[in-house]
Computed example of a mutant assay.
Amino acid sequence: MATERRGAAAKVKRARRPEVRLPPLVPWQGAGLEPDGDYDGVEFRDMDFTGQEGIGARFMDCAVEGCAFDEAGLARARIIDSTLTGIRGVGTDLAGATLRDVEVVDARLGGVQLHGSVLERVVIRGGKIDCLNLRTARLKDVVFDGCVLVEPDFGGARLERVEFTGCVLKEADLTGVTLVDVDLREAAELGIARGVDRLGGAVISHGQLFDLAGAFAAQVGVRVI
């Protein structure tokens, strides 16, 4: 594990952020999502996709605003060069999905399944996500900016050039995670429930080190009395 020290900033590779430039969009006129559907240059606004199945669907150059995705099936979906703003949902299934060059803003999600997914050049800004399942996922150039993550599960995932900026992490599970150039120094709150021994490859601040002292002691079997 690397702690904050002179020259540390120069050694931590910064995440490359997406630069989403949407073309003129066509408002969505369909009745619902379809498995393996192909959506290109579409604007989805204030739609209710509760319980709908869009397994394997592709969203390219799309804007999704204010839509509900409760129990929606979007496993293996591909979301590319798109923005997701004010989306909400419980139990949304995005297992094995690919998100590339995507901005997610003010999402309100619970129990979203992203295990086995691939996230590359993604910014998740604002909002709150409860019980985010990212087990065995691959995250590269991802920024969590000012959002709240409650009980996120990163078990077995690989995080490379991932930043947590002004982000609140509560009871995070890092069991078996692999971290490469992960910057936690600017996290507003850093709570780790499991896997503190996997912080190698991350950089934290001196204050965070003190906050995690109890967890480190427990990991090596030290009793603090």
Rank of each mutant, 00 (worst) to 15 (best):
T3K: 05
E4N: 09
E4T: 09
A8W: 12
A10Y: 04
R14P: 01
R17I: 14
E19R: 13
E19I: 09
V26M: 09
V26S: 14
P27V: 02
Q29R: 15
E34A: 13
G41E: 02
V42H: 01
T50D: 10
Q52G: 04
A57S: 15
D61M: 02
E71K: 11
A72M: 08
A75V: 02
A77Q: 03
R78N: 08
I79N: 02
I80H: 11
S82E: 07
L84D: 04
T85A: 06
T85I: 11
A97K: 01
T98Y: 02
T98H: 09
D101F: 00
L114F: 15
R121L: 06
R121I: 08
I124A: 11
L132Y: 03
R135F: 00
D141C: 07
D141G: 06
D141V: 08
C147H: 00
V148Y: 09
E151T: 13
G155A: 14
L159V: 08
E160K: 14
R161H: 04
G166K: 08
L169N: 08
E171M: 09
G176L: 07
G176H: 06
L179G: 02
D181A: 12
E186I: 00
A187F: 07
A188K: 14
A193I: 01
V196K: 02
D197M: 02
L209H: 10
D211V: 03
G214H: 06
A215F: 03
A217L: 14
Q219I: 00
R223L: 11
